[in-house]
Simulated scan of single mutants.
Amino acid sequence: MSKSKQVVGLVAWLIVSFIAAAIGATASVNAGPFYLQLQRPTWAPPANVFGPVWTILYTLMAIAAWLIWRVDGLRGARLALTLFFLQLAVNAIWSWLFFAWHLGAISFADILLLWTLIVVTLIMFWRIKPLAGALLIPYLLWVSFATVLNYAMWQLNPQVLG
């Protein structure tokens, strides 16, 4: 694969990942004020932590997908990359469920599905190229934390998050 094709591929994977981020961010326009009005556990991070963390995670996800694409192409890694796209979609919908529509139980179910999809994607990526799987570990750790935070905030705010 030529250098220029690899660069174009990397840019394409970054665009795909950040489109998913933008879809979620659209729902999160008022997330800061909403987050601050919720009862939060003492261990909840400040609102300004989420943006930088997610920027790093989406970048790592894009690089991981690009590495898989470089090894087997879209056809050769069809299942692994389909799972990657699916987890991106489930990730994007979470912000809508929690921040825009205030659906605590459904957002919790969504994040549990997301966690499962990340684990399966990570394993599949690892089998194809261990570095690609390793790049998803921070994402899995953050979503693990976010899952517990989602549950805690849902339980602490039944009047707002149902």
Rank of each mutant, 00 (worst) to 15 (best):
Y35A: 09
V71A: 10
L88N: 08
K129I: 01
T26G: 15
W54R: 03
L136T: 04
F85D: 02
W126M: 08
F50S: 03
A64F: 02
A27T: 05
L135E: 03
G73E: 09
Q87F: 10
Q155N: 11
T55N: 13
I15L: 14
A92F: 13
V120C: 08
G162S: 13
M61F: 08
A109I: 09
R127W: 08
Y151R: 09
A31K: 06
A92I: 11
W54G: 03
Q159C: 02
A100H: 10
V16A: 12
F98S: 10
V148A: 15
I63E: 00
L60M: 13
L81M: 09
P45E: 04
V16Q: 00
V8W: 10
P41R: 08
V148C: 09
L57W: 07
G76D: 07
L156D: 05
S107D: 04
L79H: 11
S28N: 11
W96Y: 15
L60D: 06
Q6W: 00
F99P: 03
L136W: 00
A77C: 01
W96R: 08
G133W: 04
V71H: 07
L136A: 00
A109M: 12
V16H: 02
V16E: 00
V11E: 00
I106C: 07
P158E: 13
G133S: 05
A77I: 00
S28T: 08
P130H: 10
W142V: 10
A89M: 12
A21E: 05
L79V: 15
A109G: 12
L117A: 03
N30H: 12
F125D: 02
P130Y: 06
N48F: 14
M1E: 07
P33Y: 07
G24W: 06
W142F: 14
L112M: 13
A21M: 12
W43Q: 09
V16W: 01
W43T: 09
A89L: 15
F34R: 02
L97E: 10
A109F: 10
T147E: 09
V160M: 14
N48A: 15
F99N: 03
L113E: 09
T116H: 01
T82D: 08
Y151W: 15
T26A: 15
L86D: 02
A21T: 04
I15H: 01
L149C: 11
L140S: 05
W94K: 04
W94S: 07
W96C: 03
A25S: 14
W154R: 07
G133R: 02
V53E: 01
W54V: 02
R40Q: 15
D110W: 06
